[in-house]
Design a protein around this nucleic acid. Structure first.
Lengths: 178, 178
DNA sequence: GTGATTTACTTGTTCAGACAGGAAAACCTT
DNA sequence: AAGGTTTTCCTGTCTGAACAAGTAAATCAC
């Protein structure tokens, strides 16, 4: 069990005829929103194809990276690290367990929780996952200078901050929140 | 329509404690990739919450926008317009039909296909969907000048183009492709 | 200590998205 | 006309993601 990876075929048919999908919303609706949407779609599809070859599904690689980096974690810790969902994490961990990449161990201090830890077999995956991320980064930043990369990053983070601010519960101008 | 700015929500619990989710990959892995990932997640979550209030799920609004804009379409046309998947479209159209937003009519010229058309009832949705997109755009671009918006758009499209290029099948340097 | 609340996790449901496989109609070639 | 191929759509399966609801353990308040 726990055969390391799927090494599949080496050259996938990463054929996305995406290019320029004309969407009504793009013209009059929201050019930025729609660009985010398209970029996200493509990026996700790309990551999915790279991950598929090493036997992971999108999202699972983040769990594994956290575990490799931080060691055994409770599910709730993983949920917080990834800003994910407890229900999703339950299933993701179960699938990773069935795939032989993680193991569950009852928490010695909390009988509600279990500790999730990477199996030794999973360590063969680590380099591959890191290669996937590095490849994705190379592809995304192809042809961009260091300054342009920094610029792009600042732009992405600014957009993100705008959404974070808008999503943040209430301004709560109350002087004494507590 | 197009109420000016984000002016925050008045009610929803759009509480994402996102903020700064520390992910291993962010530090050493791929800052740009990870920023795309986070931005996409937030953007999608936001769109989902706005759409939920008007009774749609993410993705369905795009189908409706195409139908409102272009009139009756075959499923395969919608698939191509959205760069989606035939299987997904089958189910999305079925759900939209059950929700009363679209109707199916057999194609007069092709007995394999049916034409999907928006119902009259759906037209009440149109303004709401447009408001959602416009709100999303306002939120995303809050505090950005016109030039900065154009800049951000260029950045997003450049990243997108990088992925498109990488996904495009082969360079095929063969002089005579045919 | 007893009882209420919170926390960690699970299950059920619904949705999008991707892939495999298949059916029927349309098409092309011979 | 006959046969093979392509197109259009559907179903099944598996995954992530989100929400609701529930269980068991821990914690807090009294």
């Amino acid at each position: 069990m726990t055969e390391p990876a799927a090494e599949a075929e080496q050259d996938p048919e990463v054929t996305a005829q995406e290019a320029t999908v004309p969407v009504p919303g793009a013209a009059r609706g929201g050019p930025i929103s729609h660009a985010i949407f398209r970029l996200a779609r493509l990026h996700r599809m790309f990551a999915g194809q790279l991950l598929r070859r090493i036997g992971l599904h999108p999202g699972q690689e983040l769990v594994m990276m956290h575990l490799w980096e931080l060691g055994p974690q409770r599910q709730i810790d993983l949920v917080r690290l990834m800003d994910s969902d407890a229900a999703t994490m339950t299933r993701t961990v179960r699938r990773l367990e069935q795939a032989g990449f993680v193991r569950r161990r009852p928490s010695p201090t909390d009988r509600r929780a279990s500790l999730i830890e990477p199996t030794t077999a999973s360590h063969a995956l680590r380099r591959e996952v890191e290669q996937v991320w590095s490849r994705l980064e190379d592809i995304s930043t192809a042809g961009l200078s260091g300054a342009e990369c920094a610029d792009a990053l600042a732009t992405l983070e600014r957009l993100e901050q705008n959404l974070v601010r808008a999503a943040t519960p209430p301004p709560e101008p109350d002087a004494r929140p507590q």
